[in-house]
Design a protein around this nucleic acid. Structure first.
Lengths: 136, 136
DNA sequence: TCTAAGATTAAAGCTAACTTTAAGGTCAAG
DNA sequence: CTTGACCTTAAAGTTAGCTTTAATCTTAGA
């Protein structure tokens, strides 16, 4: 398939796919006689992995290391494991933080909701600041 | 306190504090006769809130809206609530995603760990791809 | 008093992750 | 055979969130 079809399927701009290729995230890309890029169906899954990993907080640099693509038969095993473990720690830290963030948000919202609609807004703001301040 | 002291206390570069001020995140700042900025202790907490909110995924734009600082006595109440509710939804969505991410990571790590150390690394990579692919 | 540390500003620079632009080739349809 | 949609490249532009630089001023300390 051509880049436009792949882009539509993956929900990405063609420029973005070319960018990933330029960054070394998509191994070597076949070309037709006309010079057009030709992709196999597998590429779409690689794109999905890239996007998913990005959403999980991986940078393109990290993702490149997670998807060796090329030989590197030797050491990549350990590097891969280390990278994954580090990211797991990061994800868990983020989860812990989000639990607090969510609690803070809910507390602040409740506080504002239960105030008289005519109340002075500055009191609300003080409350917001106080709630956000006290939670962490 | 002067900007250097505040910066040290908050663990931020002075330039960053000036930047936040320029972006309207720190209301009006007092100045000494020499033109130096003079901060009250409260400012440190505002900085903490900014950093915490950033870590929670708020952009500086969003944070500015959460910390009105100035008058706006009228409509800011509703805007504030709407903004907070939207962010709560975002946080919860992120939490849901992280649960899956974490599960994927653990699965992938386990898969790699249980492989024979001498195994072909390409098999691992296939596994990594497969695991990441199948989870979402 | 001299000096070094730290303050000020405006403006320029940096990084990541893209998008847009410019200046072309290619191809299917009418 | 022309039109319009789609492809190519290299290079420049964009946004967020800062940092660095340059040129100048202030102040605390030996």
């Amino acid at each position: 398939m051509k880049i436009g079809e792949l882009a539509k399927e993956a929900g990405l701009a063609p420029s973005r796919i070319r960018y990933y290729e330029a960054q070394g995230l998509i191994g070597s890309v076949d070309r037709g006689l006309n010079g057009y890029r030709r992709y196999s169906r597998e590429t779409r899954q690689i794109l999905e992995i890239i996007v998913t990993a990005q959403q999980a907080g991986f940078s393109l640099d990290e993702i490149r290391n997670l998807l060796p693509q090329q030989g590197k038969t030797g050491r990549s095993h350990d590097k891969l494991l280390a990278s994954l473990r580090k990211k797991l720690v990061d994800v868990e830290a983020l989860q812990a933080r989000l639990i607090e963030t969510r609690a803070s948000l809910k507390a602040v919202i409740a506080r504002i909701e239960t105030m008289a609609p005519g109340g002075d807004c500055f009191d609300n703001i003080e409350g917001v600041l106080a709630s956000l301040r006290d939670q962490p």
